[in-house]
């Protein structure tokens, strides 16, 4: 499986109603290049799955989409990522409203060492989204409900979020993200630390969230990609090899590397 020089992405990386469009994105960690000229559209209200062998740059690319890479000193991003017509890498853009619009859920559940209520209320509080206590209560309840956690925690909203089980913690993190009411949600292997039952719950949740949000999800599991996404993008060694509808990728992949990956020849 050799590296392909200047690979032009196979399939359909672009779409008509793009929420986010990346153009010629390159990422360097110091001297080392991690992403090579990736161009990709993410459509409104679609779920796009990013797959590929580990270390191929899925997380790196995902973190470009809300400039989380800014927190890593040595990380340099070039190219253009346009959200609703504006380049988010424009020096004038402030990352705060950007990240409020493009939320993120991480691989390992990372609830803050606060109560469940305060975890969910964190975003609305810092952004001043609620005008009153009642307002805030409502946001918290709705977010927990949407995340499918309300029934389980409504009696212990004021106990620490870190006391929940792994799956519950991850749903709490999702609730925390949707409490800000973003437009796009980025998820980096949100189920990799969870058991199958918790995973099923999250997958169900993603399906529901699609109505309202645009979602990009990195996943290691091809079954998961097949279950939750409409389009799938395959990354290999920092390059975007192929993007197609999920059905097509898993039934008739265009590129041999994609085929090799989904048939389990490496990963």
């Amino acid at each position: 499986m050799s590296i392909i020089e200047n690979h032009k992405t196979d399939g359909k990386p672009f779409c008509d109603s793009a929420k986010l469009s990346a153009r010629d994105v390159c990422v360097h960690y110091g001297e080392k290049q991690a992403i090579f000229d990736v161009s990709l559209d993410i459509g409104k209200n679609e779920v796009i799955a990013l797959i590929g062998p580990s270390g191929c740059g899925k997380s790196t690319f995902l973190r470009c989409l809300n400039r989380m890479n800014d927190t890593i000193d040595i990380c340099k991003v070039t190219g253009e990522i346009v959200l609703d017509g504006g380049n988010i890498y424009d020096p004038k853009v402030d990352v705060v409203p950007l990240r409020a619009t493009v939320g993120m859920v991480f691989q390992k559940p990372n609830p803050f060492p606060k109560t469940i209520y305060d975890n969910v209320a964190y975003g609305p509080r810092i952004h001043g989204l609620a005008t009153s206590r009642v307002d805030l209560d409502e946001i918290v309840e709705k977010s927990l409900q949407r995340a499918g956690l309300w029934a389980e925690v409504k009696d212990r909203l004021h106990s620490p979020g870190t006391g929940l089980s792994g799956g519950q913690q991850q749903r709490l993190c999702i609730a925390r993200t949707i409490a800000v009411d973003p437009e796009v949600i980025l998820m980096d292997e949100p189920c990799s630390a969870l058991d199958p039952i918790a995973t099923a719950k999250i997958e169900e949740l993603i399906d529901e969230l699609r109505e309202k949000y645009t979602i990009a999800i990195v996943t290691h599991s091809m079954q998961q990609a097949a279950r939750v996404s409409q389009r799938t993008a395959y990354f290999h060694l920092g390059q975007l090899i192929e993007v197609n509808s999920t059905d097509k990728v898993f039934t008739t992949p265009e590129h041999q590397l994609t085929e090799a990956y989904i048939t389990g020849r490496f990963g």
């Binding site: 409203p97 409020a100 619009t101 952004h127 001043g128 989204l129």
Partner: peptide, 8 residues
């Protein structure tokens, strides 16, 4: 959300 955040 974005408008409220901008305002803050």
């Amino acid at each position: 959300t974005r408008q409220k955040v901008e305002a803050s």
